Simulated scan of single mutants.
Amino acid sequence: MRRRFGPVLAASLWALSWMPAPAQAQGEPVKVGYAKCAHCLPMALLPDFAKGATIDAIGFNSGNDVLTALISKSLDVAQVTYLHYVTALDKGFDVVAVAGEVNGGSECLAAKGLALKADDWAGFKAAVEKAKAAGTPLKVAASRGNAQDIHMRGAFLKHGINPNKDVQFVNIPNPSDHLAAVQRGEIDMVCSVEPFASQIRMAGAATRFVLPYDQAAGNLTNLIVTRSDVIKTRRAAVQAVVDADVALVARLDADKSVWIDVINQKTGLSKEVAAEAIKNAEPDYRMHRAKTLAIAAMMRDLKYIGRDVSAEAEKNMDYSFLEAATKKTRDGLGH
């Protein structure tokens, strides 16, 4: 059974989750963490949209690192993924979802040696079966535990390919290393995150096989979460974050140039790559309850979690902040 956290780290996080949060004055900055990917990096702009609170936006290498910082009370609010949310609940951690941000950002790319056409599941399945019969299963890479990993595994399973048995999974934790692995011929396919997926494709190292959204999670990716103690002691600060998120999403919809600029500035990749990357991204502050429950069920089927967390996943989605920010009811916000 594959688990996101090892036993030692899980035990440490459990202990950290029960530590009292440090006392904070209401006027202190609210610390918000985000990961370094095309659909996450707009969070770096969040302070520009803040009203009623000062937001300190802090970048991390991965969503895994962001979740760890939230659980250890180094952050007040975290932009992670629906997968991280479900995984945290499975571990018994205190996380409360308060808003969405951007969805999408996943792409499966095939090495040129596979000679696969886009969306050719029959051809891919035939290649998988041939390689498996020869005792040299295809090597499929992703960053274990991120949204692209679960999107890929769910899509494979739906099309009759068992990601745990039919292919050899290769974990490449840092998505920025995906391009080099393809160029060195170490993998046959990678499910990467934008903007690194577009970087791979535009470099000519691999071709698009599929956008892996044909599974229970759809294209759901980002979720903004906090802890119940933060809501209790700093509710106004959490509301300020959600208000800023709603304003940010509106800006991303209206002006793609600010999005392209922040990707370029934070990753060093060209604006051309950034512009291509955001074609595979959808700003969306809603929280999609039904699909969240479907994700939880799929993750259990894939052995990512060990129990049914549907009740907790639904209970811990707090729509009150989005309702206040948008003046809409939860029925119009994904409930």
Rank of each mutant, 00 (worst) to 15 (best):
P195C: 08
L248C: 04
R184T: 14
A141M: 13
H39Q: 12
K112F: 08
V32I: 11
G113S: 11
F169L: 09
K327P: 06
Q199W: 04
L138P: 01
D253A: 06
P173F: 09
P29R: 07
T221M: 01
D308G: 03
V8Q: 15
A122Q: 09
V309A: 10
P195S: 12
R286H: 12
S72R: 03
F196H: 13
G218S: 06
P212E: 06
L293N: 02
R144D: 15
N264M: 13
F49N: 02
V167Q: 07
L46V: 09
A297W: 00
P20H: 13
F156Y: 10
D119S: 03
V170E: 04
A15E: 08
G334Y: 09
A237Q: 15
K328D: 10
D284N: 15
G52R: 11
L138V: 07
M152K: 02
Y85A: 04
A237P: 00
H288Y: 04
D76W: 00
G185H: 13
R4N: 05
V241F: 15
V249K: 08
L89Y: 02
S192I: 01
V182G: 08
L248Y: 03
I278F: 07
E282C: 00
S198T: 08
A25F: 09
S143N: 06
A290M: 03
D308H: 06
K132F: 11
G332V: 04
A57S: 15
L293T: 00
I161R: 07
Y285M: 01
A133M: 11
N222L: 10
A11L: 14
A281W: 00
T136Q: 15
T226R: 06
I260M: 09
N316Q: 14
V8I: 11
V258I: 15
E101N: 04
A57N: 12
M299T: 02
P47T: 06
A118H: 07
N174D: 15
R2L: 01
Y82V: 01
T207K: 08
V309K: 01
A11Y: 06
G63N: 07
P22Y: 13
L157T: 09
A290S: 10
D48S: 12
A297H: 05
S17W: 00
N219R: 10
P195D: 12
D188Q: 10
A217Q: 11
R235D: 14
P20F: 14
V210E: 14
A325C: 12
I71L: 06
K112L: 15
C108M: 15
M1P: 14
Y34C: 05
Q24R: 15
V225W: 00
A181T: 12
G100S: 10
Y304E: 13
K73W: 10
V182W: 08
A88F: 00
V273T: 14
V193H: 03
D331Q: 14
S62P: 05
S72Y: 02
